[in-house]
Simulated scan of single mutants.
Amino acid sequence: MSSLRNIALTVHELEAGEFYWVLMEGTDYTIEDVLPYLPIESSSDPYGTYANALVAGMAAMRRMFGPGGPRE
């Protein structure tokens, strides 16, 4: 079985009351013991609440990677 990719989901409030989900992937590069992440996908339209953006981001992750999760 292939290994899992290091995917993170976060939510950003770019304007007051406008929340966007962002999927990021961990890189192999380290900077002073920090694992940087690079964006791989994000919402183009804002959500009215943090919770709605978070749920939408999780749904996007499921659509992108399917039931087996993000495997290499």
Results as ranks from 00 to 15, higher is better:
1 M>N: 12
2 S>F: 11
2 S>V: 15
4 L>M: 12
4 L>T: 12
5 R>F: 03
5 R>E: 07
6 N>I: 10
7 I>H: 02
9 L>R: 03
9 L>C: 03
9 L>F: 03
9 L>W: 10
12 H>A: 10
14 L>P: 11
14 L>A: 11
16 A>F: 10
19 F>R: 01
20 Y>C: 01
20 Y>S: 07
21 W>Y: 08
21 W>R: 02
22 V>M: 02
23 L>T: 03
24 M>P: 04
24 M>T: 13
24 M>V: 08
25 E>W: 08
25 E>K: 08
26 G>C: 02
26 G>K: 09
26 G>T: 11
27 T>H: 05
27 T>L: 14
28 D>G: 15
28 D>I: 11
28 D>S: 11
29 Y>G: 14
30 T>L: 14
31 I>N: 05
31 I>S: 05
32 E>C: 12
32 E>F: 10
34 V>Q: 12
34 V>F: 05
35 L>M: 14
36 P>A: 00
36 P>Y: 05
36 P>R: 02
37 Y>W: 04
38 L>A: 10
38 L>P: 01
39 P>G: 01
39 P>T: 06
40 I>N: 00
40 I>S: 02
40 I>P: 04
43 S>T: 03
45 D>F: 05
45 D>H: 15
46 P>I: 04
46 P>C: 10
48 G>A: 14
48 G>Y: 08
49 T>C: 02
49 T>M: 03
49 T>F: 02
50 Y>N: 13
50 Y>E: 14
50 Y>D: 07
50 Y>I: 06
50 Y>L: 15
51 A>C: 04
51 A>D: 12
52 N>M: 13
52 N>E: 15
53 A>H: 07
54 L>E: 09
54 L>A: 09
55 V>K: 15
58 M>K: 13
58 M>Y: 15
58 M>V: 06
60 A>H: 01
61 M>G: 08
62 R>C: 14
62 R>T: 13
63 R>I: 04
64 M>W: 14
64 M>T: 10
65 F>E: 01
66 G>V: 07
68 G>S: 06
68 G>P: 04
70 P>L: 04
71 R>V: 10
72 E>S: 10
